[in-house]
Design a protein around this nucleic acid. Structure first.
Length: 840
RNA sequence: GCCCCGGUAGUCCAAUUGGCAGAGACGAUGGUCUCAAACACCAUCCAGUGUGGGUUCGAGUCCCACCCGGGGCACCA
């Protein structure tokens, strides 16, 4: 491709020498970038070893309307590191695409009697144009949309892979159900007050057969690997994932239930406090678990059914309240405590969850507040087995959970250490075969079925003769039938069910009549592997090219919003581990580093239509220009902090950019002039600034990089105006440095400066200023002289001054001597070359 | 209740391994320029680091307790 460009030399700046035309500059450079394609990532450069790789990724957007401030921020931040890596000699892959399946398109289609694709692809084009204008260094040759059949073909392929590996299965379970709209709702569609976002009806639960991915299979590894991510992921996200996975160590303990018909049945409970087993005075099973109905004594069966009815009616809001009084029903049977043979009553209650642990607990009211509350409500016995020195829980109604001396606990009596007590009890249970140490997780399997149209169809055919049959790989993709408008209206089943011709098919195995699965996949499935598709987005023979995945992966820095801190990142990690075990990739984690950007708010509040405080990106770009908006967002705060638009000044950014640009007009030396003969002081500033900027960018401290660039601009201005003037070679070096640093944040201004300095486009492909280590050494440094830790004087010394010389020089300093004031010197602390502290 | 992160000028934010609290900006005030204004430029202004202890020659930085703000989990046994 030719690098001769039309006319972006220094020749056409003949209008106003103090400002440049922002709009004209934007249009001009978009064209140049389109022609030069400086941001296309070369597979060849990486696979041949010609250049080391970096894979930079920012979360791809959902195409709802145009870009908003959050996108503007994340793209600006992300571009700093992408462009920096390119400068430092890496082959950078920086792809972008759209997470384009999802509900808003479907709702819009119902409203406007159109096809969801109409809304989706129109928005994508709008966003694409905005991104181009925004000047982000994306490699557009790798663009993808998850709603394209060429993409979701492979999403379906991955579903089948999961199923083959035993990681996708169907089960019956309760889901959110809107009784008015007759439809299943995703969790996100249920408002905080438990009502339907569409019609306001109170959402209830309904039993449906749904597809799940077995995420729990990887719970332990997903948890353990967080240790490795601790130092390179932002802390709160690691913390959120830990809490979400919720690992807890404890024990399984087997109790024998003595049923009404005289038989016994073994039931296992999970507990984190096996050491309090002697204090178990009753057992509780989840009221809605199958076990409760199975073991209840006939005399109590009606009571249980009535209770269950009540529980089902309770909405999630009630259930969520921890202040709610305990309720339950006696099952009329007993359980045998495996360590002391004691018979304890068995109750059912909704405070025990059916889908956590084993759905049954041993209740130790003395040392667990929930059990104590239940015991008090139903007048059940309380037995203290750990004497913590606190008052008796039976009287205070306050359970004691700390360390103490074991009592009434058989072999544990007299022990004082909780950890030792737990270990001892687990050993004892294991010996007797009535229990064992175990680890339990809060994480549940991933429910991925959606009774929705605009998603990837689940590639399964249901055949009366053969059962669940996977669609053969060569028949993928299972494409969506053409539905639009009112066809998509929720009717109690997936809209796909109404597409009779599509649903009715033949069984791939026996050829008999069969029906397609009518559910679509959660859109989180689409986004759990898109980062892999980017390595070979046009490959129509495989899900992705393993060799290219090996060459590009894993992602060196991923940036996104906090709202995906748990689900998306966890699902992507899960997919990665499955694909590794399937032999398609070799790495364990997809994102080597993760940074989350804060929110852009306005006047202390989240931007929203109802508050009327939204800030429109397009308007801001129109008023201040792309560079000023980007600069504002990067400079405002550290990346992860929120930015209050009321606190920042895009007008100030614009002023700074013009000031920086003006420097380029003052440079009168020719490109290639040797800077060595230039002003030494300015050269020092330039090299120090670039050296520091390297450290700062690599530490993601982008706001400080901008501040340091401002300093360099100020120093250069001063040198031109009051010293060496625009012909000094050091001035050229400084301004070129400014252009390069600025190009990380304000690419249009930087390109314009670079051209004005007499260079060919583009600055993004220029050679980064090589820092001269000799220029980083100061001629002299200021040593601080302290007495009792308080600064009393300062002297100039050589940077390599010895400790002895510095001490001597300090003690000879008259100001310091005066400060010592004749007091005896007890000790002198010397930290050459910067500090001397005299202790008197 | 448990777990993370943070608290520095009027505002947003800086401050290598503990070593001069201020780099950068916003804002305000005054000035130069101008018929005037805007722009630009110059100058000035403002905190002792949430509170209380501790360690140290020396603490914004390390330790303990507490207060405030933000986030995650939560009847998860």
């Amino acid at each position: 491709m030719s690098t001769q460009q039309q006319d972006q030399g220094p020749d056409q700046q003949d209008q106003d020498p103090t400002t440049y035309d922002v709009k004209a500059v934007e249009a001009k450079w978009q064209q140049v970038w389109d022609d030069l394609q400086p941001f296309v990532a070369s597979d060849e450069a990486v696979t041949s070893g010609e250049r080391p790789k970096k894979y930079a990724l920012t979360m791809f957007p959902y195409p709802s309307g145009d870009l908003h401030m959050g996108h503007a921020e994340v793209f600006a931040l992300h571009d700093v590191i992408s462009r920096y890596w390119r400068f430092r000699g890496f082959e950078v892959m920086n792809p972008m695409g759209w997470d384009s399946f999802g509900l808003p398109a479907e709702n819009a289609a119902i409203r406007n009697d159109t096809h969801p694709a109409t809304y989706t692809y129109a928005n994508i084009e709008t966003q694409y144009d905005s991104m181009k204008r925004y000047g982000v260094s994306f490699d557009w040759t790798r663009r993808l949309h998850t709603s394209d059949p060429e993409y979701y073909r492979w999403t379906q392929w991955l579903f089948l892979l999961m199923r083959e590996r035993g990681l996708a299965y169907r089960k019956n379970s309760p889901v959110n159900w809107c009784p008015k709209d007759q439809t299943v709702l995703a969790n996100e569609q249920v408002l905080a007050d438990g009502t339907c976002e569409r019609c306001g009806a109170v959402v209830t639960k309904r039993e449906l057969t749904q597809w799940y991915f077995r995420t729990t299979e990887y719970a332990q590894e997903l948890y353990d690997c967080l240790d490795d991510l601790q130092s390179t992921w932002i802390g709160k996200v690691v913390n959120a994932q830990r809490n979400w996975i919720g690992r807890s160590e404890g024990a399984h303990v087997d109790f024998a239930l003595n049923l009404a018909d005289g038989s016994t049945k073994d039931v296992t409970v999970f507990t984190t406090r096996p050491d309090t087993l002697y204090g178990a005075t009753f057992m509780v099973v989840a009221a809605d678990a199958a076990l409760a109905a199975e073991v209840v004594a006939p005399a109590q069966a009606d009571a249980l059914a009535a209770y269950l009815e009540e529980v089902r009616k309770a909405s999630d809001i009630d259930r969520l309240s921890t202040e709610r009084p305990k309720t339950g029903v006696d099952l009329g049977i007993t359980a045998t405590n495996p360590v002391n043979g004691e018979q304890v009553p068995v109750w059912a209650s909704d405070y025990v969850l059916a889908d956590y642990g084993t759905g049954a607990i041993m209740a130790v009211p003395a040392h667990d507040q929930r059990d104590l509350d239940f015991a008090k409500a139903f007048d059940l016995p309380v037995r203290t087995v750990v004497d913590t020195g606190e008052e008796n829980p039976e009287e205070t109604y306050v359970a004691t959970t700390g360390d103490g001396t074991y009592v009434n606990s058989g072999p544990l009596d007299g022990m004082t250490d909780k950890a030792a007590g737990i270990t001892a009890m687990i050993e004892r249970l294991t010996e007797r075969g009535t229990g064992s140490g175990t680890v339990n997780f809060r994480l549940r399997d991933w429910l991925l079925s959606r009774q929705r149209y605009w998603g990837a169809p689940i590639p399964i055919v249901h055949c009366e003769a053969c059962g669940e049959v996977p669609v053969p790989v060569d028949q993928l993709p299972v494409e969506l039938p053409e539905l639009r408008g009112s066809d998509l209206r929720p009717q109690g089943t997936s809209p796909l069910g109404a597409a009779t011709e599509w649903v009715e098919t033949t069984c791939p195995t026996c050829g008999g009549p069969a029906r397609r699965d009518t559910d679509t996949m959660d859109t989180f499935v689409d986004s759990s592997w898109y980062f892999l598709r980017f390595v070979s987005p046009h490959d129509d023979t495989q899900v992705f090219d393993p060799a290219l995945a090996e060459a590009w992966g894993p992602i060196d820095l991923y940036i996104g919003g906090d709202e995906h801190a748990v689900l998306h990142l966890l699902y992507a990690r899960f997919f990665t581990k499955v694909l590794r075990d399937a032999g398609l990739i070799t790495w364990d984690e997809p994102f080597s580093a993760y940074l989350s950007q804060g929110k852009v708010i306005n006047n202390g509040r989240k931007m929203s239509k109802s508050l009327g405080n939204g800030v429109n990106v397009a308007e801001q770009l129109e008023e201040f220009g792309v560079d000023a908006v980007r600069l504002t967002l990067v400079f405002a705060s550290p990346p992860e902090d929120n930015i209050d638009w009321a606190d920042v000044s895009p007008a100030g950014s614009q002023k700074f950019l013009q000031r920086a640009w003006r420097l380029s007009g003052d440079v009168t030396s020719e490109p290639g002039v040797d800077p060595a003969t230039g002003d030494l002081a300015l050269r020092r500033v330039t090299h120090k600034t670039v050296a520091d900027a390297e450290q700062l960018v690599e530490g993601y401290r982008f706001n400080v990089v901008v501040a340091r660039t401002m300093e360099l601009v100020n120093a250069t201005r001063k040198t031109i105006d009051s010293g060496a003037g625009g012909s000094d070679p050091a001035v050229r070096e400084a301004v070129e440095g400014v252009a390069q640093l600025l190009s990380l944040v304000a690419p249009y201004t930087a390109e314009e400066m670079w051209a004005r300095l007499g260079h060919q486009p583009c600055v993004a492909q220029s050679t980064w200023l090589a820092v001269d280590p000799e220029l980083l050494v100061e001629e002299s440094v200021t040593a601080v002289l302290q007495v009792q830790g308080k600064v009393r004087s300062r002297i100039e010394v050589a940077p390599d001054v010895s400790a002895a010389d510095l001490e001597a020089a300090a003690l000879a300093d008259p100001t310091l001597v005066a400060a010592i004031d004749g007091r005896p010197v007890r000790k002198v602390i010397v930290r050459e070359p910067k500090l001397v502290n005299v202790v008197v």
